[in-house]
Design a protein around this nucleic acid. Structure first.
Lengths: 325, 325
DNA sequence: ACTTTATGTGTAACCGGTTACACATAGCAG
DNA sequence: CTGCTATGTGTAACCGGTTACACATAAAGT
């Protein structure tokens, strides 16, 4: 490994001088600077981040904690984050918590142990004040509390929008799928939809789903039609479930959207590729990632007047699982 | 930050002793050990990985380089890797290269700068001997060379299998979709299919696709039916494209699998949720991730007699876009 | 001519761990 | 009783950077 000493020797200067040209701070003579740069080039030197991080007590790493990258909503968040923090030279330490408190704590510990400059968390145990003692800048993503800066989309409004839309489009027997109880944003959507449905005279039933996995989605869809064979409008807990419902409905010979209308949630990339393409409530995932990253970077730089909470707009994407006027 | 010195003071011993109980090496008296452990508990001490990494010249981090986590094949690989390296206490530094050489080089540099113990790469610029100078254990995933240990599935055989199956099931005018030219495994599949098709008297045409993104998939599907409206069997470059083709075919009023049979590639989770469910050539992504991680861990531990190349089996998953006998 | 200030460079301490080495003591063999 | 080994603990060097501080010189101000 080429160290700063090797460069110093090669250039005939002290390590302090090399460090100065590296960091472009302090005074360095024009001549010396060139000599050092030449030495760095010929030796193909690249400074050891670990040593730097030790002294500065701060690395160029950012901890990212997600529930499960296998859920197509999260890779988009992750890319939004990665692409923006990279521009400032930061890299990601990634952890999937599977919504297990223990894994979450473990990852938080490694983040701390590795001197991350900040972390972004999209997991559910926010309430449990596990972040309180942390000295590290934190941004919550797809979650909120008053305690920490956060980026999220308005789930309550998303739920309302889904319900309003479905009613408008003439659904009479609506089934509302409730996401896992411990997933906050899922509850918001659900409550939003209930808000609207409660104010109408439309019948609706609720089906609880307890996970977001692909394997289970099929099961929820089957259960849906067993319990509520006559439903003519479904508000799915997310797009995966929505797609599973399309699948099952077609299998049962239902016509979409004539017999059955479906609204998903998230607008994951594959939603436009289903047949019929899934109408859904869009969350701008990539942009949410970007916003969270920017918020974190600002917090790190201690920029004044940083908004601590960013609510992203939610939007109905009309495709073919809902009726056109 | 609580340091080893704080613990040493609290326990009334030297830092060396604390370090010894931390690492469970060297001689430590039973009494002393308890005192130290108690001190660590009361202070809630957790050792700084950065300092450790600096001295050892080796961190507990593993670099993971992927083309794009947004492609649903890769999150599964990633989870396979993460879940197995976590068991040995390693964590992941993640990078998406977007198949750009520059990003790839940048990430490799950060991996080195952060003293990663090893790295796993699923990107395409393997040929460019960018890894040669590296001192770090490397495992290639979803790619091969003779130079490095690697885990991959037999793309050539996958391609053959797809072609054989389609022929068997009675397709007469086959269209073969070729993946991006710079993506090695895509080429293997393609060649495998050509191998088989060339030996038959069946007509076939080739359509080149130059990306794997969701947005573009729709376009390839449209192009397919414009150029080859009479095709009755499609070997898609991957499942995303396969799903897009189902979508487009249904839109055009084609019956699947009566008029048109489709075989995808990868078996991503959403493939079983399409309607009709997509028949596909399965690559065991999660298991490939596991295998790559295990191979890397063995290389790190310098275990003798490590297999340097693991070929994973490829399998036809019969669903409803191909005809049953 | 004499401060003062700006510029340029090196020495050494420091970040928080690990470990080589020195030293001390106890147990045991001869 | 002496010498050797096993056990237990501390001191200090070391990992590869950064930076406070000291020192030297040149330019500018009075």
């Amino acid at each position: 490994m080429i160290t700063i000493k090797d460069v110093a020797r090669e250039a005939g200067v002290s390590v302090a001088t090399v460090s100065r040209v590296l960091n472009e701070n302090g005074y360095v003579g024009e001549e010396t600077k060139k000599k050092v740069q030449k030495a760095m080039n010929t030796l193909n030197y690249s400074p050891n981040e670990v040593a730097r991080s030790l002294y500065k007590r701060e690395s160029k790493l950012i901890g990212l904690l997600l529930p499960d990258i296998t859920n197509p909503f999260f890779p988009q968040l992750a890319r939004g984050i990665e692409d923006t923090v990279n521009q400032s030279g930061y890299r990601l330490l990634l952890g999937n918590s599977d919504e297990e408190l223990e894994k979450e704590l473990d990852y938080i510990q490694t983040f701390v142990q590795n001197n991350v400059v900040g972390m972004i968390s999209a997991t559910n145990h926010v309430d449990q004040n596990i972040y309180d003692a942390l000295q590290i800048p934190l941004v919550l993503l797809d979650r909120t509390t008053d305690q920490y800066p956060s980026v999220y989309s308005d789930g309550r409004e998303g739920g309302r929008l889904a319900a309003r839309t479905l009613i408008e489009k003439g659904a009479k027997r609506i089934t509302l799928m409730k996401g896992p109880a411990h997933v906050k944003p899922a509850q918001d959507r659900f409550k939003g939809a209930v808000d609207v449905l409660s104010e109408t005279d439309i019948d609706f039933s609720v089906l609880a789903t307890t996970s977001y996995s692909f394997e289970d989605a099929k099961g929820w869809a089957e259960e849906l039609f067993q319990k509520y064979p006559n439903t003519d409008g479904v508000i799915a807990s997310n797009d995966i479930v929505g797609i599973a419902i399309i699948h099952e409905a077609l299998r049962l010979g239902k016509r979409i959207p004539e017999d059955l209308q479906i609204i998903g949630y998230d607008d994951i990339p594959q939603s436009s590729l289903s047949y019929p393409p899934l109408s859904t409530i869009r969350q701008p995932a990539y942009e949410m990632g970007q916003a969270a990253a920017e918020l974190l970077l600002q917090t790190i730089k201690k920029e004044p007047g940083v908004e601590t909470t960013i609510e992203m707009p939610v939007e109905f994407i009309e495709r073919d699982t809902t009726r056109k006027e």
